[in-house]
Design a protein around this nucleic acid. Sequence first.
DNA 1: CCTATTTGACCTAA
DNA 2: TTAGGTCAAATAGG
Length: 231
Amino acid sequence: MMIQQVCLVTDHRKEQKSKSPFIKTETVTTPEDGQSWRKYGQKFIHKSTNPRSYYRCTHKHDQGCKATKQVQKSESNPSEFVISYFGEHTCKDPSTLHLEGAAAPPDHCANLIDFSSINNGTAATASTSAFPHSMLFPGISYSSLPAQGLPAFCEKLTQAAADQVAAEEGQRMAATVPLTVGSAPAEYWPAPGEVDAVDAGISSFPSSPSSLGFTGSFGSFGDDDLFGFDS
DNA sequence: CCTATTTGACCTAA
DNA sequence: TTAGGTCAAATAGG
């Protein structure tokens, strides 16, 4: 599975009813993203030749997971799918969450991204900060990441995640909230120099994302996203 | 039998 | 009224 192009938009325009206001849109070559989805509807959208399919998390009922997504074939390129994600995955599907339990990340990453505490802890219970932390790096497994090069990698994740939380909780209503890529603030987009620095730090990474041991969807991990993976 | 998908009906915001 | 999103009964498949 390869993501040819990823265009990410975190959309604050419409708050999808009671759902999270955050929307992530990406264009991929396969609608498969490693998550457990259940289709609940399909409609032909006005002025669109391709139908739009509606999916909700398989664990909506047993775990109250509010995540939904919409899949529509690209108008310009029928081999691609435009997928919009709404809300956050709060479920604990072991097949989709690899960041907890047995597949814990290396020690120096263990305390960096703790979705269990984020999703079920104070952040989740505080309705005013319903930030889709779990969508930051959806479906990613750290179980077989290379041992080398991780400090820079993790530091990057930590910085982005921590600042995102701060931005969400502190500047949520402020007009100065930066435009975001996926769920990460625009300020963490790889600036030319920054990319080089990151590349240097993770120079021992395999050259292809598919060989990194990630599973499922890369979500916001495109080649031109947070990290300058060579491809 | 159980779970997922299909599909027309229904609901609601614009 | 219309378009888009969701519901739920019928159906399919393992």
